[in-house]
Design a protein around this nucleic acid. Structure first.
Lengths: 186, 186
DNA sequence: CTTGTCTATGAAACGAGTTGCATAGCAGGA
DNA sequence: TCCTGCTATGCAACTCGTTTCATAGACAAG
């Protein structure tokens, strides 16, 4: 399980409430890890019970109060321990690939619209990543300026997301060309 | 859930036992969908109960008997239905990306060995894919010869796997360069 | 004739993730 | 005033996936 570790990283980058974490998981952290608010609230409860994080009630105006979580010493230690453990290279899950192979037993041309939909979704995500890179990682100083480590590491992760989307879009072009070719050949 | 659909596709490509399916999920199907023999046996049971697949006891010599499954009409219909339903573009889960961002709060240089390990694993997988492509998709006839649709679709999925591994390896090179740079800057 | 390995199937328990539902404060507009 | 929508938190039920353990036939090596 890495959700608790993803939460620790996010809280170290900036303390926040369960609700705020859920929104981060729709954005930056969500580029490489997803979680619903249900999971997040449950795991926060457990982590609080284990002494990994501290809570602070924060009264707010114009909106309901919130509980702001921050990482405690035990949480930092847990994260450090996990960072030094080896993990297995991830196993992939591509519904779309299952569909493509399955299309051989149905109508391949019927998949074209679906693949185009995915193409648009990935193009949108790429545009979103590139906008984020432009916004957050266009150095105001000279090139080669040593920034802090966290910024560099966030950037290299974002570059991974960008590379992933570019690769996926190119592959979906390949898939579309293949489906069109198969349709021409009946 | 798409495990049942992945199994249907695999059984349509070639009928087989739970054990054989488990081995396929370590190879070709496993390139884009993973499953253990436990999951497979359980789902096969359910699919048999739902009338999606048929069983046939096959006595064997020199090894235990097996149950060979093949897709029934109901299963084919279920697959077809799923193929025509839209699916969401996959959400990603990259433990390694969590670790990289987490390394900002620990020792980034300690990650180098881990990243190198992943680099080797992905290089091995790429070599494996390329060998499979060479073996199965090097056309014995003239280039442009229209093969059957199933073969074409299997190939485009494999090309996706190859593109994914190449992209990942290039990104891990980027990550390693970043980690080394951070180490030089203390 | 015991031990190890490969084929082949399965039960049981647990942990992770999803879905649906519920509550509540506060704001703005019909 | 009521309805909608956003912030904010949570329970309960369920499904999916992982881990551990168990069984059993066949063969080969020692």
């Amino acid at each position: 399980m890495a959700l608790e570790h993803a939460i620790l990283v996010s809280l170290l980058e900036k303390p926040g409430s369960g609700y705020e974490l859920a929104r981060r998981f729709e954005r930056s952290i969500g580029y490489f890890w997803t979680a619903t608010h249900q999971q997040i609230y449950r795991v926060l409860k457990r982590m609080e019970g284990d002494g990994w994080i501290d809570v602070r009630e924060v009264p707010q105006q114009g909106r309901p109060d919130k509980k702001e979580y921050s990482v405690a010493a035990l949480g930092r230690a847990a994260l450090s321990g996990w960072l030094h453990e080896p993990i297995e290279p991830e196993s992939v899950r591509h519904d779309l690939a299952v569909k493509i192979r399955g299309a051989a037993f149905d109508d391949p041309a019927a998949l074209i619209r679906e693949v185009e939909r995915h193409h648009r979704a990935h193009s949108d995500r790429l545009a979103h990543y590139l906008a984020g890179e432009e916004r957050d990682f266009t150095a105001p100083g000279a090139p080669g300026t040593p920034g802090d480590a966290g910024r560099e590491l966030q950037h290299v992760v974002l570059r991974g997301g960008i590379a992933y989307e570019r690769m996926t879009i190119a592959w979906l072009d390949d898939v579309l060309a293949t489906l069109h070719r198969l349709r021409r050949e009946h």
